[in-house]
Amino acid sequence: MKIRKAIITAAGKNQRALPLQMLVDRDGVPKSALTILAEEITGAGIEEIAVIISPGTEKSYMASAGPYAREMQFIVQPKPLGYGHAIHCAAEFTGNEGFLLMMGDHLHISQTGKSCAQQLIETARSGNCAVSAVQATHERMLPYYGCVGGHRVPGHERLYEVEAVIEKPTPTEAEQKLVVPGLRAGRYLCFFGLHVLTPAIMKILGRHLAAPPVAGNTGLSSALAELLLSERYLAHELEGSRHDIGQRYGLLNAQLALALIGKDRDEVLTQLIELLAQSKA
């Protein structure tokens, strides 16, 4: 499967300014979150990027895109009609091609030489199918994420054949439908904010959006649940970590994680220890 295009969603109500936040990257260079994402995407061989934004934010995004502004096009989601709708706004952009989907408020930090996006794209190419990045997550976080159930692909420690997708399941439902053999009790494979999807997903989303609204049927998860009925669909537990910069202290966490794998690690560690020593309990 050829993957040349990527979508970054950044039109969510509480998400709009997040990609514009500045961080210091692993090389000690200040950059916007959007730039860091674009670096990861282009580093994985993606040629074109579409950023889904809310009306009136195009200029500030353009300014934050830095050297990647050329590869980017900004698509406005006219009304906040949900995550599925936001993705579908890029249906024309992706056309009949597979694409990488990222969230503008999530940064991914790889623990290997390959970026998270690259790991995922390679899996999609070799499997020739849709793949979602997942992370084993404690059940207390279930109210916040989409979640998949399935079984390990024989011979692949981190790869799963997906059999069910449920958006924000209760632990009751998760235990019944999403238990994955081999995971620790009370842990489920939750979305990592990173997917490689086939063109079929746009058709499904389109169909869902055209139909009368049904509870739980306007997001990506319900479309993925339908996708797996007709196509192979994998989940990849990436070697990396996910940082939601929209959460409380999320930006700080992401910054620390970046710094601790970068060239300024010693300096940041020293500062942290000094802070610890000075702080009163």
Partner: peptide, 15 residues
Amino acid sequence: GNQWMFRMGHPADHP
């Protein structure tokens, strides 16, 4: 569907 309830020991973990 019943198992998780025996693991939960703190309000912050309530799903």
